[in-house]
Amino acid sequence: MTKSFPDRLLSLFSWICAMFLISSVSIILGFLILKGYKAVNLELIFSDVRPLDALLLRQRVFGGLLPAMTGTVFLIVLSMALAVPLGLASGIFLSEYASSKIKWIFSLTFDILSGIPSIVVGLFGFSITVFLHHYFNERIFPCLLISALSLSFLVLPYIIRTTQISLESLPLSLRLTAPALGATKRQNIFFVLLPSSLSGIISGIVLAMGRCAEDTAVIMLTGAVATAGIPKSIFSGFEALPFYIYYMAAEYSHPSELRKAYGAALLLLIICSALFIFSYWIKNTLKTKHFTGHNSL
């Protein structure tokens, strides 16, 4: 079948665009891998300290990425601890309890929240700090806790949305089974609906973890600093991988520092890709299990 001229043009245009996108992404990733792969080794993370000593805090790591990595991990864990319960509960409310009018209003606010630029969320965290510093305690400064709190605001709408969507997309037959057998609404939610939509919810949470790991704008206003060592408490300043990359790109003074920055960038990319792939895997493998097999409660 011969194609008409507009069809061939359309096809050519699409191919060019697709190739352009693929090559741009490949250039970015390739550049980073090429420049960074030599730097990614144990020395990048632990400097000249023995890994075991560093992990057991027997020896402090200077010049390695360990403090930045622990800072990022602490950030992820803390902000998830704050955002997940709130997000889950809100998602459940929207999907299971809210009337359509309330749902409309709430989801509009959550949409606005997810649209707020991350630097503004950071500014919010910063203003909370300033407020507390002036009116409550002079010793309150930007710190890990404030950063994690701000990050949790940033990812809250994602968690709410994925929870709501996973619950709403459950088939009606599954939704009605337990109430038909006399279960209360609460029992239905906790023993049937939540376990069945777990794959979607968890994959959403993992994606949110990726956002916490990569976001720079929020933490640069709320406590990330260039050198802090491994954070001692949640009220101290901290280092984080994305901030380190940003800082080094502007302030590096020696080729060896630049090499480390490449290594850090590659490391962050690997972490974020791993989280993305993990979330994808959870979504696909667990989901099929739930609907073809029997639901284990």
């Binding site: 319960p85 709130l86 997000g87 509960a89 809100s90 459940i92 409310f93 929207l94 299971e96 309890y97 809210a98 209003i105 709430f106 606010t109 959550f110 606005i112 929240l113 707020i116 503004v120 969320v121 500014l123 919010f124 203003s127 909370i128 407020f131 605001f153 809250l156 709408p157 709410i160 209360t184 609404k185 609460r186 939610i189």
Partner: peptide
């Protein structure tokens, strides 16, 4: 059931409050 309903409602209201609080604080 009523307890959990209010718990979930409270959580949603709190999350929505964040959106408003960001603007109000600024």
């Amino acid at each position: 059931d009523r307890f959990f309903r209010s718990l979930f409602l409270g959580a949603s209201a709190l999350s929505a409050l964040v959106t408003v609080a960001v603007l109000c604080f600024m």
